Amino acid sequence: MEYIDVAVIGGGQSGLAAARSLLAHGLRPVVLEASEQAAGSWPHYYDSLTLFSPARYSSLPGLPFGGDPDLYPHRDEVVAYLLRYAEHLDADIRTGHRVTAVRAAGEGFELDVAGGRTLGARAVVAATGGFGRPNRPALPGLDTFSGNLLHVSQYRNPAPFAGQRVVVVGAGNSAVQVAAELAQVARVSLASRAPVRWFPQRPFGRDLHFWLMATGLDAAPLARFQRRPASMAVIDDGRYRAALAAGLPDRRPVFTRVDGPSVTWADGTAEDVDAIVLATGYLPDLDCLTPLGAIDRSGRPRHRDGASLIHPRLAYVGLEWQRSLSSASLRGVGRDAQRAARRLARTLRRP
């Protein structure tokens, strides 16, 4: 069995930031990425996805994003940036290595990798982030739907939905963006439990992220006061709010039930729909930590500010609201990675 210093599970933005910080603290990380490239979930997002933060606020530590700092990068530009970042790291990055189980072994760990291989590690950083497992809410009768049911993680572009009746469930950024895009080719309703909340992308003439950085709110340790994060307001430059105001899409309370091809709305009316898109968020993909007892029944990690409450040599990077509102973002994940690496280095040096 091969023995390594620190196993970093996940090779997206969180894993790459973690690897850099671990190297800076004298540790030797091995990044284990399930897919065939070190770009995390980014290649799988919908085609039109564009960041809400401009390039100047969208970098990992040590390598600027590049290009016009005031432009908002597209999904494919983020993928290219992450691949470039991985190339610049002096780290052992192993793609095609899916970790299936992590077990305690003495003071360290044993990791099972798909295909039958086992690795030993002194420490583990779980860097799969908070967006690896689509959240599919238990809406009444949803399992009976006979149309096209998909999570937004499976959505790519509106072409397959042309001329159809589509319901998008959710009230966050992805829900609003995808619903507005679909409304250009289909008849679309945005169904949510509460009305959409809005926040301007450029308040007082400056990008929102300028103000977050200037006020210190971006890095403020707010997670302990936000144990159950409320749905975030939709960041908008005006076009999405205008689209909803024009009924493209229309917004209505979420349906009360599904029965075969039809949904029943809150007013009692029923209609057949062709597709339901669940833009209902994600959960951490951390099932491999189950043998450690490190996650709760809902699949969420037992941690405080990224430090495992179960094992002193286990840390997390990239969880939503791990420590601050930017913990799961390109601009913020590096801060949490530095904290995790510093803590692990201190732990591993103890006699």
Results as ranks from 00 to 15, higher is better:
residue 253 P to I: 10
residue 213 M to C: 05
residue 230 A to H: 07
residue 253 P to E: 11
residue 237 D to S: 14
residue 256 T to F: 02
residue 255 F to L: 04
residue 242 A to H: 01
residue 253 P to K: 14
residue 249 P to N: 09
residue 228 R to F: 07
residue 225 F to D: 06
residue 232 M to H: 09
residue 247 G to V: 07
residue 230 A to D: 10
residue 222 L to G: 02
residue 238 G to E: 08
residue 249 P to Y: 03
residue 219 A to P: 01
residue 235 I to R: 09
residue 234 V to L: 05
residue 243 A to N: 05
residue 234 V to G: 06
residue 222 L to W: 11
residue 227 R to K: 11
residue 238 G to D: 06
residue 255 F to P: 10
residue 216 G to F: 09
residue 255 F to E: 11
residue 257 R to Y: 01
residue 249 P to A: 04
residue 241 R to E: 08
residue 248 L to S: 10
residue 235 I to F: 09
residue 219 A to S: 11
residue 231 S to V: 15
residue 231 S to W: 05
residue 226 Q to E: 15
residue 256 T to S: 13
residue 223 A to I: 04
residue 229 P to N: 09
residue 235 I to W: 01
residue 256 T to W: 01
residue 240 Y to A: 06
residue 237 D to M: 03
residue 221 P to L: 01
residue 226 Q to I: 10
residue 257 R to T: 12
residue 252 R to S: 11
residue 225 F to W: 14
residue 220 A to Q: 03
residue 252 R to P: 06
residue 227 R to L: 14
residue 239 R to P: 03
residue 214 A to C: 04
residue 222 L to T: 15
residue 229 P to V: 11
residue 215 T to V: 09
residue 218 D to Q: 08
residue 228 R to A: 13
residue 234 V to N: 05
residue 219 A to G: 12
residue 227 R to V: 10
residue 212 L to P: 00
residue 214 A to R: 12
residue 214 A to S: 08
residue 223 A to P: 11
residue 249 P to W: 04
residue 242 A to D: 05
residue 211 W to S: 05
residue 232 M to T: 07
residue 239 R to G: 01
residue 218 D to H: 13
residue 212 L to C: 02
residue 223 A to F: 08
residue 216 G to E: 02
residue 249 P to D: 06
residue 252 R to C: 15
residue 224 R to D: 13
residue 237 D to Q: 10
residue 223 A to E: 12
residue 253 P to D: 13
residue 232 M to C: 01
residue 230 A to Q: 12
residue 227 R to G: 13
residue 234 V to T: 03
residue 223 A to N: 09
residue 232 M to G: 07
residue 225 F to R: 14
residue 216 G to K: 04
residue 228 R to I: 00
residue 230 A to L: 12
residue 252 R to F: 07
residue 242 A to Y: 01
residue 246 A to C: 06
residue 231 S to A: 14
residue 221 P to I: 04
residue 211 W to E: 07
residue 247 G to E: 02
residue 241 R to C: 02
residue 243 A to Q: 10
residue 242 A to N: 02
residue 238 G to A: 09
residue 252 R to Y: 09
residue 228 R to H: 15
residue 239 R to M: 06
residue 248 L to E: 05
residue 217 L to V: 12
residue 250 D to Y: 02
residue 229 P to Q: 11
residue 217 L to Q: 03
residue 251 R to Q: 15
residue 251 R to Y: 03
residue 235 I to D: 05
residue 248 L to C: 10
residue 255 F to Q: 08
